[in-house]
């Protein structure tokens, strides 16, 4: 068959991509699993690293902080992205420009964003002087254990929401106009149209955004590393910061690898659950 004769040319086209993906993604993932099973200063496999991290209060704290962070930030960001997408989906003059403005923060290095916000959050910073305008006293933001995680969420959302908005706008533009027209004939109001036409039609792009956003928020690192370093009192110590601290500050590669495996497993489980909930898995 010609299919077999195609294999050589296909291999030629695929080789660079396959080699780089296997070497630079799958192999390190395998190494992480391997390292996590090696106890420190031993050559036999064991679960010691996992037992260690699950009794380490600072790791347990970071899991808790990460879960709390996800449960709050993901619904908020997706609701915001959807609201923005609906607002910005039109052909009015200038909308294209404003859309670009909202998208822009995603392309700026996160370290830059973190530095800008660090100055905005200072006690004498821009945010406090704006709050003062409306009669609110100075807030502590990233130096307060109660406000620090919320402050990180604000930065991360400023960075990411425009990106998810853009994906959802593409989805909105794919919805056939005729659906809205027939809904109007049936006497549907704006809310009905949103609930019975827009949301169901947006299911695929929404699934994608939900999954990709969740994954991205599990991996937040630079803003935490730069703005708070995980503090105050561990209140912003997301897992990625914990892994970095374990590996490069404490030099404990074994427990960093175990924490990495736990993180990837957590991400995959949540992604699978989301696919299930959105009923997308059976569709393909």
């Amino acid at each position: 068959m010609t299919r077999w004769s195609n294999i050589r040319v296909a291999a030629l086209f695929l080789l660079p991509a396959v080699v780089s993906v296997v070497l630079l993604r799958l192999w390190p993932a395998a190494i992480a699993v391997h390292q996590s099973l090696l106890a420190p200063r031993a050559s036999s496999y064991s679960l010691e690293n996992y037992l260690y991290i699950f009794t380490d209060p600072s790791f347990l704290n970071s899991v808790w902080v990460t879960l709390l962070f996800s449960f709050i930030i993901n619904p908020l960001q997706i609701a915001a992205a959807l609201g923005l997408a609906i607002l910005f989906n039109n052909k009015l003059p200038m909308t294209g420009f404003w859309r670009t403005a909202v998208l822009l923060p995603v392309a700026i290095p996160q370290s830059v964003s973190a530095v800008i916000w660090a100055v905005a959050y200072r006690p004498d910073g821009l945010l406090n002087s704006l709050l003062q305008l409306v009669g609110i006293g100075p807030q502590r933001f990233v130096t307060s254990p109660e406000q620090a995680l919320g402050s990180i969420m604000l930065v991360v959302s400023w960075i990411g929401v425009g990106y998810w908005m853009t994906m959802l706008i593409a989805g909105l533009q794919d919805i056939p106009k005729s659906l809205y027209e027939s809904a109007t004939i049936d006497g549907a109001n704006g809310w009905h149209k949103f609930w019975y036409v827009t949301l169901p039609q947006l299911r695929r792009p929404l699934t994608f955004v939900l999954v990709a956003d969740t994954v991205a928020n599990f991996l937040v690192f630079a803003p935490v590393n730069i703005l708070t370093g995980g503090g105050p009192q561990g209140s912003t110590d997301l897992i990625m910061n914990q892994i970095y601290t374990n590996a490069f500050v404490n030099g404990d590669q074994g427990s960093a690898a175990a924490a990495t495996v736990v993180l990837v497993a957590l991400v995959l489980v949540i992604v699978l659950i989301q696919f299930r909930l959105m009923g997308d898995g059976s569709e393909r």
């Binding site: 993906v21 390190p28 994954v215 590669q253 690898a257 990495t260």
Partner: peptide, 30 residues
Amino acid sequence: EFPGRGVVFTTMIVSFLIPFDAIAVPLYSI
């Protein structure tokens, strides 16, 4: 069209489901 296309495609999909920053440390040792 070639035999094994599905396998290669799945490999690509799995590769982008693995969060890059999470494997940065072992990749660094490679």
